[in-house]
Computed example of a mutant assay.
Amino acid sequence: MSWPAQKDRRRDKRRREMLWAASDVFTALDFNQANMQAIADSAGVTKATLYAHFDDKEQLYRAVIDYWLEELPEPKLPCQARGGLRACLERVARELLQQSEQPASHALTHIALRSNRIPQKRWRQRYLPYQNYLEKALSQSARCSDHGQAATQFLLLAVGSIDCSNLMAVSGPRLAAAVELFVQAYA
């Protein structure tokens, strides 16, 4: 491996370690109480090193949120919604439950619970693949006149909130209830 490539890998590793440390500090202290010195100490770097990577706490915070959002796996939903409404809803429910069990989801949830500084638009983007798939599935139902609104309503029932101001734990029973309600309403 060439010297520049090794240097880039070390820099990326250090940046990732700083993001993890910042996640821990933002979770423990929230945004307002956290400071660059505490984050540097947690990361095992100097404050100067931290500032070499991030201009200020706000930029670091955004980088942490972006990092964890990017770490969330894409849901494994097929391009076409096939197999009947129940099957499609159950597929979405399984994927939502799997996503909620990811370390990235845990990190984002803990940070969001301590601070409401996560941009709502960016937070909601994590639900777009589900929204799109649900709209396709619900478009097959003659009883559903507004596929977009119904898809949003399913997500609200399934996860409690699609913004980060009112977070709730995703659970199997909650997802099953959402599936049953929508099957009764639209199948």
Rank of each mutant, 00 (worst) to 15 (best):
D8V: 14
D8R: 15
D12P: 05
R14P: 03
R15T: 14
R16F: 13
L19Q: 08
W20S: 13
L29M: 04
N35H: 02
N35W: 00
A38G: 07
I39K: 01
G44P: 02
K47E: 06
A48H: 12
T49P: 03
D56P: 03
K57W: 03
K57Y: 02
L69E: 11
L69H: 14
E74L: 09
P75A: 13
K76Y: 02
K76G: 04
L77R: 05
P78G: 03
A81Y: 01
G84F: 01
G84R: 00
C88T: 01
A93T: 13
L96W: 11
L97G: 12
L97F: 15
Q99G: 14
S105Y: 14
A107G: 07
T109C: 12
H110C: 13
A112S: 10
R114P: 00
P119T: 06
K121H: 08
R122D: 01
R122F: 00
L128P: 11
E135F: 10
K136S: 03
R143Y: 07
R143F: 05
G148M: 12
T152H: 15
L155V: 10
V159R: 09
I162S: 08
D163S: 11
D163Y: 07
D163T: 12
P173S: 12
P173W: 10
E180K: 00
E180Q: 07
V183T: 04
Q184V: 05
Y186Q: 01
A187K: 01
